[in-house]
Design a protein around this nucleic acid. Structure first.
Length: 431
RNA sequence: GGAGAGGUGGCAGAGUGGUUGAAUGUGGCGGUCUCGAAAACCGUUGUGCGCGCAAGUGCACCGAGGGUUCGAAUCCCUCCCUCUCCGCCA
């Protein structure tokens, strides 16, 4: 959520941002909001003046009744009509404020000056050099589906039977490899980079979705259990960021860094037909997420740190990847700046998104009311929130399986992962 | 699922219709004392919105939303949450 004072003071900056984000149609919403804001302030003033009058007269009534020095009937009659006028005005205010909030919740975040202006994903910038790890793959390659099936470690068919398409089942060494990845990533973040481990709930209420920005705009992406008014989390970002919703944090507790594993659930409505095979698009996947709460002046350094921590996983696993700096037309509505990390899929011959690292500045903190006090004499300020996947295992698994496949049709386990798997290679079953 | 208790400021905890934005304690900040600290004592200390260059000033806020009233932390209704006991259960 944007600060309405910024909208008032520099609406042109926000309009430029809307155009850069390829959503010029929101300009009309912004103009309506500003109009409603003026009307609201006019009404507030009038209503407050009437309330002030009522407060004064009510005190008078109390004094007259106490001293028994006269009749209060006329005053009470007068205040009855004042009360009616106040109620009428306040109900108009309530409606106006509801409309303003709808617009404010729908408007996207500002953009950081370093974000390239571009229309779509094609105009994202490659950040730094793609990282390669030499690995001879000079034999006919299998893709992750073929490998998963022939090795008996992934079972999409039975997943579809049990739940539906897009719910993969990991079997045997595949399940162990998945768990090893999760443990390895959590250990890396907590032991090397100072994150505190969190194991969050996988279902949240609507307030939490609203706090991180999935509600109301992206609610169709989220599984909903209406009987209990609960939502399956699309990412651990939601429960972990909302841990501090409504809190006034101590300045010395910042920065707060959390790392959390969770399963992630996404409806992926309307995305059929594109990149849907196997792991490329699923309804349930596993992810280790990093979440940070920082002072405003520290958030952009923290974003670089998070990106580095995600990259450290891929470097340790020796999986080829590249980093993208998302352009204004592709970056998500909540973020001011975002890096995507993409792993290389040799069999698909393309990069797959495995991580997204974002700074939200105070956009989520304002929605979720997460503040801190710089020192005893200062007013509370909103913190900045950030998060990054570190990382999602499904696309990572694709890259790992394909990148580490052997000519015999097996998969070698990366060195760093072997203490976690307890085996160094997944070998094909004997014919 | 059933029964009961309760949700008040950073924290603890009074307050059941009229100077209560809210006693008191504690924590924070400033000061006195001290070589310094502790203790003691004195002062100060909520958030949001509106108006204002500012000093300031008006309004709102005692879990959330409604209602009664000239006036609500206080009375009524609905909902949410926490705790205790019972039942069921991994």
């Amino acid at each position: 959520m944007l600060d309405i004072t910024i909208l008032r003071d520099s609406p042109d900056d926000i309009i430029t941002m809307l155009h850069n984000r390829q959503q010029p149609e929101d300009e009309a919403k912004l103009r309506l909001l500003l109009e409603e804001d003026r009307e609201r302030r006019r009404l507030v003033k009038e209503s407050d003046e009437l309330k002030s009058l009522r407060n004064r007269k009510s005190k008078e009534i109390a004094e007259i009744k106490k001293s028994g020095s006269g009749s209060t009937d006329a005053l009470i009659l007068e205040m009855q009509s004042v009360g009616t006028a106040i109620a009428e005005m306040d109900s108009r205010l309530t409606a106006l404020e509801a409309s303003m909030e709808d617009i404010l919740l729908a408007l996207p975040n500002r953009l950081h000056p370093s974000v390239p202006v571009g229309r779509s994903a094609e105009e994202n910038e490659v950040f730094g050099e793609p990282v390669r790890f030499s690995h001879p793959l000079d034999f006919p390659l299998k893709n992750h589906l073929e490998l998963g099936k022939s090795l008996g470690i992934l079972d999409f068919e039975r997943g579809a039977k049990v739940s539906g398409a897009g719910f993969p089942v990991y079997m045997g060494q595949g399940a162990r490899l998945e768990r090893a990845l999760i443990n390895f990533m959590l250990d890396s973040h907590t032991e090397k980079h100072g994150y505190k481990e969190v194991f969050p709930p996988f279902m949240v209420n609507r307030e939490s979705l609203r706090g991180t920005g999935q509600w109301p705009k992206f609610s169709s992406e989220v599984y909903h259990m209406p009987e209990d008014e609960l939502y399956a989390i699309p990412t651990a970002e939601v429960p972990v960021t909302n841990l501090h919703r409504g809190e006034l944090l101590k300045a010395e507790s910042l920065p707060i860094s959390y790392a959390a594993y969770s399963a992630c659930f996404r409806r992926e409505a309307g995305s059929y037909g594109k990149d849907t095979r196997g792991f490329l698009r699923v309804h349930q996947f596993n992810k280790v997420e990093m979440v940070k709460f920082t002072r405003p002046e520290d958030s952009y350094q923290a974003l670089e740190d998070i990106r580095g921590h995600a990259e450290a996983i891929l470097k340790a696993l020796e999986i080829p990847y590249r980093v993208l700096l998302l352009c204004s037309g592709d970056i998500s509505a909540n973020a001011t700046k975002c890096y995507d990390i993409e792993v290389w899929s040799p069999a698909e011959d393309k990069y797959l998104e495995a991580s997204s690292c974002s700074n939200f500045e105070d956009y989520q903190a304002r929605r979720a009311n997460i503040r801190f006090r710089r020192d005893a004499k200062s007013k509370p300020e909103f913190v900045h929130t950030l998060n990054g996947s570190g990382l999602a295992t499904s696309r990572l698994m694709v890259s790992l399986m394909e990148h580490y496949q052997t000519p015999e049709g097996g998969i070698q386990v990366p060195e760093a992962l072997r203490p976690y798997t307890g085996f160094s290679e997944i070998t094909p079953p004997a014919q």
